[in-house]
Design a protein around this nucleic acid. Structure first.
Lengths: 142, 142
DNA sequence: ATTTAACATATAATGATTCTAAACTTGAAG
DNA sequence: CTTCAAGTTTAGAATCATTATATGTTAAAT
């Protein structure tokens, strides 16, 4: 399989030994058309669902997700207490967050442009800008 | 004391009985010139530091912070894994986040203007926009 | 094939937050 | 100004996500 090989070398290139577990997780996460948002809890459930052919320990999932993040293959997103989302889209971009369904949607960087801009404090420079647009069902009273 | 009275009625108005603990916490949080960013851990330490005249149980601090948030006196901000910040500035506004010192600074709403804007998904409307500008020390290599 | 550092694993440990059940306050009614 | 019920506070237990440990396993260099 070509795809598996590609993943193996992708891992190797970033200093990660392509173990069975890592390749399986990489396949699951990166062989997709759309970007994928998930929590470790999600991922663990999806991978270790009943009747799945291969199980991966929770600790390994944590290790792997962090290794992938460190290697730049995942981005971490903070939106909700106790929920740490990861994103397979590692480019600089923004998000819609649907509080009703707990769902994240990507907004590509070029869809948002800032007109006005604050000056960062002295001695500091801007590293990254993150916009989260919280959305609600229509006709909602607040 | 006028300030204490004001706080008591502020609490009463939002359906919270002005108990000793709540008034003390409200004083600590709201009788300030600048807005205040904190975690529950912070707040607990500040309130229950050695030699302080009055101690408040951790559970009460959690209860109270959540009650204040529900009543609209505090805003919750998500920026970092395992760190849930609260903000005494409840108006819609944005933040600088200094990853080096773990520090938040308010950016008033009118300092940022969006030029371009994505359309929200069907059936959804925008509730709130949150911009987090991550800052770094100058001359940092990434 | 052998070797060894890197890795995966189950389980224990940690740390933040929430729950629980009992004791104490508050404010309202008698 | 006592009494009382509902609302609060509290210490400690329980829970949940995450991280550490220490033991066995594997990838890949020799």
């Amino acid at each position: 399989m070509d795809k598996k090989k590609d993943l193996a070398s992708k891992l190797r290139t970033s200093g990660l030994r392509p173990t069975k577990q890592r390749v399986l997780l990489a396949e699951f996460l990166f062989n997709r058309d759309k970007t994928f948002h998930f929590t470790v809890e999600n991922l663990n459930k999806a991978i270790n669902k009943k009747n799945s052919d291969y199980k991966i320990a929770l600790a390994t999932i944590y290790n792997t997700v962090h290794a992938f993040k460190k290697a730049g293959h995942l981005k971490e997103i903070f939106i909700k207490e106790g929920k740490n989302y990861f994103d397979t889209n590692t480019s600089s971009h923004h998000h819609f967050y649907d509080e009703v369904n707990n769902e994240l949607t990507d907004i590509e960087n070029n869809k948002i442009e800032l007109k006005k801009f604050p000056t960062p404090p002295k001695g500091k420079s801007i590293k990254d800008v993150n916009v989260i647009i919280n959305i609600d069902n229509d006709n909602q009273k607040h």
